[in-house]
């Protein structure tokens, strides 16, 4: 089973998380190492903070997190568990390197917005724009995420590497010329 590609504008209520939420909190090894089924992985999303999280999260909810979200392991099961738990996007002050790459690879929108945790409270309604890569908070203020190269934003909009490859029979970086980037 695969989920549809994310919409351009995503609105939802937020779960606010602290700094340094690592991949063992997002999905402990002993659960992720025993299944290849994303629906099963989702039952253990955020297990390290709350083993019942998957019962509490609603489809379309959003994550807002502090620095270094997704640190530690290379496990792609971490963004997969978050995505299949129903969470539509993650906004963080910063992401750990591999989690960030994995989020693009599986089509979980991940936006880096320094200072965002000071602007959002638990269960605030916010919206995310995947066209101009921005976040609008409850009071209508717009915060632009750090720039991401267009090939990665395109990959995200198409829903990740599997969907991209099935459609184009190539990877989004093939034929890419060296570009300056601020990511």
């Amino acid at each position: 089973m695969s989920l549809p590609a994310p919409s351009t504008i995503i609105r939802g209520r937020t779960w606010v998380w602290p700094d340094d939420v690592n991949t063992d909190i997002i999905i402990p090894f002993r659960f992720k190492a025993r299944t290849n089924d994303p629906v099963e992985m989702a039952k253990y999303a955020m297990y390290g903070f709350d083993p019942e999280f998957y019962k509490k999260v609603k489809p379309g909810d959003l994550f807002v997190a502090g620095r270094n979200f997704g640190g530690g392991s290379s496990r792609e099961q971490a963004p997969v568990a978050i995505k299949y738990s129903g969470v539509a996007a993650v906004v963080a002050e910063s992401f750990a390197r591999i989690f960030y790459r994995n989020s693009f690879a599986i089509g979980l929108p991940a936006l880096e917005v320094p200072g965002i945790t000071k602007q959002v409270k638990q269960f605030d309604e916010i919206s995310i724009n995947l066209q101009d890569w921005s976040v609008t908070t409850k009071d209508g203020k717009v915060y632009h995420a750090l720039k991401v190269p267009e090939f990665l934003r395109g990959l995200m909009r198409e829903g990740g590497l599997v969907e991209y490859y099935k459609k184009h029979k190539s990877f989004p970086w093939e034929g890419l010329q060296a570009t300056a980037s601020t990511t």
Partner: peptide
């Protein structure tokens, strides 16, 4: 890297 990028 992660699993999907490894597949790539």
């Amino acid at each position: 890297i992660g699993s999907s990028e490894m597949a790539a």
